[in-house]
Nucleic acid binder design. Structure first.
Lengths: 223, 223
DNA sequence: CGAAATATTGACTGTTTGATAAAACTCTAT
DNA sequence: ATAGAGTTTTATCAAACAGTCAATATTTCG
């Protein structure tokens, strides 16, 4: 009888299809206008169904939003999860950066939804950040510290290092309009992506100060 | 008679005071909830005046928003304006990064307002970005290219370099909640700022690959 | 002072919004 | 085919919303 009951009940074909359509439409709206700015009417319209019908699947606006955020966070943490302690430090970081950049390219709406929520002070997911995000970052910060102690990467604050990877990569999703205005229409989306990837690789590996190290002759050093 | 007339008329003491209070309250609301999510009622309440009184100074919601954005953009471009072509490249970049970081620290609401607008696709300021921001970036990109040709900084895409400075610094304003969750309460705001400044200096100058160059022995190289 | 200019308020309007109830319809499994 | 679960619609509501208006209060300045 009740579709949205918490009971352990398997979902109908129609239920799965409609929930999918609703969440997709909601992602479109919430990611652009934030929680308050988005309206059920527009989400329903975008999903091609009546408002009461939408509310049959998700009782309240907030329920849609929370479903969206929950599934988002899992996907969002994947790249960092994959950062491998036993891998080679620099290539490992490099591929982390690339994975994050790919996510910005392939899931810009998810990136914006997340940005919007944090921008608003994360009222609805602060708990989740503390229970899910923080422990993961703590764990990976230790991995980075290990690499630094072994002299494999420059000794810096590992958490700020992670921030800089997040911010530089997500920038291409969150600030896409601005990026396009500045880069102009010359290069398409694919070109912009490759330019960004190449630049970030140089930035994170070499920095901006020029010298001969770019020929990449690894020399073991103290500390 | 009309306070909000476009006529060249000087403003009353009360007018200036109230417009200031309104804009400050509006910044608070718009920066968190975006244009749609913010309401005139809340802005009026925050400004300590009745809604009709607020609407006496700004006829429409959009007028407040546009006033806010207009004055914001000018301030926002200042640091980049100051990037000096005749200065020493690396210190010049370093102080640009620091100025941006200081703005993120001192004007987080402005940063969030801007982020919110861009996230929404910049519907209200795309024109301004094209007419104000793009030419400035183009100009400074040329400056950076000059430095690269002179071998003063590593040859990278200058526009992406600018993006990375914007994103890494503004991250501390826009994603402040997340930053605080991850860094924990140990270090206060001032400590976080100094840590960020130190980290970004290392990142942008040295990158993460460790080697002996940190002793900073400038050697002229081929172009 | 006192009159004109400016500022503030309360009462109101039409619309949008989140949400509900009940009736009508459709699908699915027997 | 049909009963019952599942789905959709029509009609509706109260609150929140942007914005207006005329009346009242306050400030400014000759």
């Amino acid at each position: 009888m009740k579709a949205r009951a918490t009971e352990t009940q398997r979902k109908t074909r129609i239920q799965m299809e409609n929930e999918e359509r609703i969440l997709d439409a909601a992602l479109e709206e919430f990611s652009v206008h934030g929680f308050r700015g988005a309206t059920i009417d527009r989400i329903a319209e975008h999903a091609g169904m009546s408002k009461p019908n939408l509310l049959y699947y998700f009782r309240r606006k907030q329920d849609i939003y929370e479903s969206l955020i929950a599934r988002l966070l899992v996907k969002w943490l994947e790249p960092l999860q994959e950062l491998d302690a036993v891998g080679d430090p620099l290539p490992e970081l490099q591929s982390y950066i690339r994975r994050k950049l790919e996510m910005a390219r392939d899931f810009p709406r998810e990136s914006r939804l997340f940005a919007n929520e944090i921008l608003q002070g994360a009222p609805r997911i602060k708990r989740l950040l503390e229970s899910e995000l923080k422990p993961l970052v703590d764990e990976k910060a230790e991995v980075l510290k290990g690499w630094m102690k072994a002299g494999k990467i420059n000794p810096v604050d590992p958490r700020h290092l992670i921030f800089s990877i997040w911010s530089t990569t997500q920038h291409y999703a969150d600030f896409d309009v601005q990026v396009q205005v500045i880069l102009g229409p010359d290069r398409g989306a694919a070109g912009r992506f490759e330019d960004a990837a190449r630049y970030l690789e140089t930035l994170f590996l070499e920095g901006l100060r020029p010298n001969e190290k770019t020929v990449a002759a690894p020399r073991p050093l103290e500390g």
